[in-house]
Amino acid sequence: MIGEILQLLMLLLLLIVCFRYARRAEDNLYLIFTALSFATLMLSDLYYLTHSHLREGMRVPFAANDIADFGMFLLMSTALSTALGRRRQRTGVTIAAMAFAAANVALWIGWSGEWVRDIFGGLSYGWFICVCFNSLYQTEALCRIERTALWAACALLIAVQTAGFFVPAGLKTPLNTGATGVLAAVEIWLLARFLLSLRREHRADATLSLGFTGYMWVTLSMYMSDGVAYVVFANAFTLHLLLVLLAVRKKVKAA
């Protein structure tokens, strides 16, 4: 509950800052979309908190906050793609990203059994994954070896999580720990690359791409973990909102 309240306050602050940037900047469309995505997430959090308070103990069914989360991913995707302008989308990357998203949806359905929520969520989140991975190629935010390593991590993650359905109960815990380790390692690596990119004077687009990709990855980490790992990733998610704003700020300054 405290984590959600902190996230809500953080979002309110980011929303105000984002709108202030949007008023000053000339080419401000991506700022408006970023602000709108923050506003959507804020409303979703507000709904979740209100539901938890008013209907204590009752599980939130597939409802408005899920739709708001889907909307948030779509608005984030639009913010990133408008910030980068009309650049060539790589068909191979799009197909691979879609396959990764589809594998994730299959895993979510396997874990939760909620078809409708997971399929609709997967569509919007899959689109976000596509835009993020394409942006890494378009801005060359990561070098070729790093991009290959990222794809390898994605494949490893899917393989390990799928294996979790078939192995004996005793092997599930080490597999889960391994998957959490991969998620955390990629998360730290992306964070380090983002901070390095943020310090450099130029390449605002690359920083933006890394910021949004980090945000996408931390969301994936939250969806793929439980217990203590989930709490850690949820806090990292709040931190990532701030990182997205820093990336946007760099882009505004560069313009």
Partner: peptide
């Protein structure tokens, strides 16, 4: 701004949905 896509329309719709749902939730108790 010529960004009329399904993604933007659904994104904007989701805000109206969650605002409406928040109101209904608040007045339901």
């Amino acid at each position: 701004y010529r960004v009329f896509t399904l993604a933007t329309v659904v994104g904007c719709l989701s805000q109206a949905v969650v605002f409406h749902a928040l109101y209904n939730l608040l007045v339901s108790v």
